[in-house]
């Protein structure tokens, strides 16, 4: 899984897993003796690998001499850490009360069907990750969804194909010019 790395942001050249591990080890060296170093190391690791695969988590546990159970506890506590690969775009469907009663669930089902994935999963082309949320403060125009930082309101299940199409072109999934 880790073989398919995100391209290096600065020089557009894919770093090998070995190189990424080496960078992670360097980062850990710096943080090892600092209290509270775990969260920054996890953030950097997620930046390097795109997510936190188990092998990376285990390496961090060894490198920082922190129990695996505790590192996993911290990762699963914060929603901004992900242990599964994440797509380029984050689709979040609101299931807050207002959205829920006004058809949020149907919208979610339509996304599942259209993308062919369950909540928390990522499409095979690494383009979309589907998630649910609890209120973006757009209750007045429910049901709402959010793709990356953009909020869409009064979403109808029939409209989602159109919304998604905006994100499907061009072939940015391969990371050109992100």
């Amino acid at each position: 899984m880790i073989a398919e790395n995100k391209p290096c942001e600065c020089c557009q050249e894919a770093a090998s897993t070995e190189e990424l591990y080496k960078r992670l080890d360097d980062v850990m060296k710096e943080y090892r003796s600092k209290p509270g170093g775990l969260i920054p190391v996890l953030q950097i690791a997620q930046g390097l690998f795109g997510y936190l695969p188990d092998e990376v988590v285990q390496r961090i546990s060894r490198g920082l001499n922190k129990p695996y159970s505790e590192v996993a506890g911290v990762i699963t506590f914060y929603s901004f850490f992900s242990t599964r690969p994440r797509g380029k775009h984050m689709v979040r469907v609101c299931l807050g009360t207002a959205c829920y009663v006004r058809g949020g669930k149907q919208v979610l089902d339509a996304f599942k069907k259209e993308l062919g994935i369950e909540v928390g999963e990522t499409t095979g082309n690494r383009l979309f990750t589907l998630d649910v949320a609890r209120c973006f403060g757009a209750c007045g125009l429910a049901p709402a969804i959010m793709i990356d930082d953009e909020v869409y309101q009064r979403v109808k299940p029939t409209k989602i194909k159109e919304i998604l199409s905006k994100y499907q072109q061009p072939a940015t999934a391969e990371g050109k010019g992100s």
């Binding site: 129990p67 695996y68 159970s69 505790e70 996993a72 506890g73 699963t76 506590f77």
Partner: peptide, 9 residues
């Protein structure tokens, strides 16, 4: 051993 820890929130 530290095998156990709270997971999730």
């Amino acid at each position: 051993v530290s095998a156990l820890f709270p997971q999730n929130r």
